[in-house]
Structures are given as structure tokens and as C-alpha cells.
Amino acid sequence: MTLQITDAELLMQFRTTDRREESYTILIRRYQERLYWHIRRIVINHDDANDILQNVFIKVWKSLDGFREDSQLFTWLYRIATNESITFLNSKKKRFYLPIEDVTKELKNKLTTSGNFSESKTELKLQEAILNLPEKQRIVFNLRYYDEMPYEEMSRVLGTSEGALKASFHHAVKKVEKFLLAD
């Protein structure tokens, strides 16, 4: 029953009652899977995705009182999750002095060596194709193809114009198709 309350009601409950933890637990349950998959597609590895997801929820807990509701809660959560994931990848590059190509290589390597992946060869091929995309294009492709996110909402998440996002998605689709049909 509590899961049926709207985001606005949940926020109100979080801010005005002594049931903050209860409200927040509902919020986690409501968004954890979608956020997890979004993060996982960016960082590939489950342990990294798990760490980032937890950090996202901790950050949200700290900032939820100040959330102005200009955008939907869902959009705001996606934006934090995207930023955290990109920060994670950037820190990896800085820590190991890796060029972006090597990070992509490492992510591809994780796809094939880590145990947390299905044995679907077509899906593996698609993931390899997506990993060949530049970072921003990769995120746009994932949000549009897997999460089926409207450009308007994606614009709020990524802070990019709808037109730029459309162009980015078109380029990404063409590159992926080319990679898949190459063999």
C-alpha cells in the first residue's frame, strides 16, 4: 500500500514526519532497479555498480531536503546516478593514467571474463558495439534504447539540448548497427 503513494507524497512524508527512514526505504525500493541497470550499463562491473548505487542513495538522502521539485524525482535521481558513474570512470582514468581507449578495453574485458554475464552471444556483441561508442553517446544510446527515455527527460538528466541528444542517438544507432552487421 505504501508503494502506491506518489513521489510528491513520499517527499512530503520524508520532510515533515518522523518517518524519514521508512519513506526513504520506499524510495530506494521504487528506484533501485532502474538506477542499478543504468549504472551497470555504464560501468559494466557489478561491484562497481553496487558501490555507485549505494553512494547515489547516500547522496540523495543528504540532499533530499533541498530538492526543489523543479524536475521529477526520477529525473533527478538519474542525473545523480549518471554523474556518479561518469565520475567513477574518470577517477579510474586518472588513477591509472589510462586513456579512454584503455578504459573501454578494460570494460570489454570485464564483459568476457567476469562471471556476472549471461552467455548470450548476440547480446555480448551488442554490448561490445555500445562500448565502442564515445562515453556521452553510449549513455544517450542506453537511455533511449534500454530505458526508452523521452528526449525531453533525457535533456534534464544530461543537461544537453534535445536536438543534440537526437543527433547523438542517431549517430550511435548507425555505429552500433554497422558493428553488428560487420561480421
Binding site: E21, Y36, W37, R41, F57, I58, W61, L111, F117, S120
Partner: peptide, 22 residues
């Protein structure tokens, strides 16, 4: 299809782990 696999019962433990850290 979903290529990625998550450990069993992973999503039922997230809220507990997050609240503990908070």
C-alpha cells in the same frame, strides 16, 4: 535481452546496506 546478471537477492539487500551506511 539482459546480458548482465546480478547476485541472487541483491535488490532485497540494497535498502538495508544503504540505510546502514547512512
Amino acid at each position: 535481452e539482459n546480458l548482465f546478471i546480478v547476485p541472487e537477492n541483491y535488490f532485497s539487500s540494497v535498502e538495508h546496506n544503504v540505510m546502514e551506511k547512512i
